[in-house]
Amino acid sequence: MNNILSIKKLKKKYHTLNGEILAIKNISLDVNEGEIIGIVGSSGCGKSTLLNILADIDKDYSGQIIKKQIVSAYMLQSDALLPWLNVLDNACIGLKLMHKDNEDNINYVKNLLESFGLKNFIYEYPNNLSGGMKQRVALIRTLAIKPDIIFLDEPLSALDYVTRLTITDEIYAIIKKMKVTTILITHDIAECISFCDKVVVLSKRPAIIKNSYEIKLKNKTIPSLNRKDELFNYYYDLVWSDLDK
């Protein structure tokens, strides 16, 4: 597999009036093309900080991040849809900001919306959508710029449990269909194991990689069914014991 992203000895400090806070101590990680990697850790351990660095939002770090000429996109915890724009305009906002909102790309987004069950909602406003639909639009907005890699920062944390399970399956289907390399950040171990090919466990702050596991379920299908796999509990216990230490 082709290596798409390489993180070497990443370190991140915050400066406050009371002194320095080390958020990330030492993280090295290789990400291969098409892989879905889950990063799990307790709240406040530095997961989102890591993602901000990978997505170029935070450029104040030491260490090395080697990226190929890739387009990356980021999906946040909140859907962050703009209430004054309709679904199509919301989904195209990234294209517009990057000056790529030509007819071909807009049609591409329309097709994405149609193929992911939003055909009848293209000209609706976010207020008229359910929480799950909003997250789908947010994902399509992320995918609209045709990224090589996407970063998902607890994208479903705002949803109720049942919607979350359904949407996890849908997002998984979309990502697999589009063969996009994905890094998912979550504190939900079950979500991480059922969704990802590889799970990386982070320690409490300052973050280091405690362990990483290739998830080899007996019958890997969609996330909601993966939770019923024989080996699911085995991986769950491994990750849980890492986090519990």
């Binding site: 980021y74 946040l76 915890q77 906002i93």
Partner: peptide, 9 residues
Amino acid sequence: YKIKMFKTF
């Protein structure tokens, strides 16, 4: 969050 979303693009 919306500002951050813009920055991601």
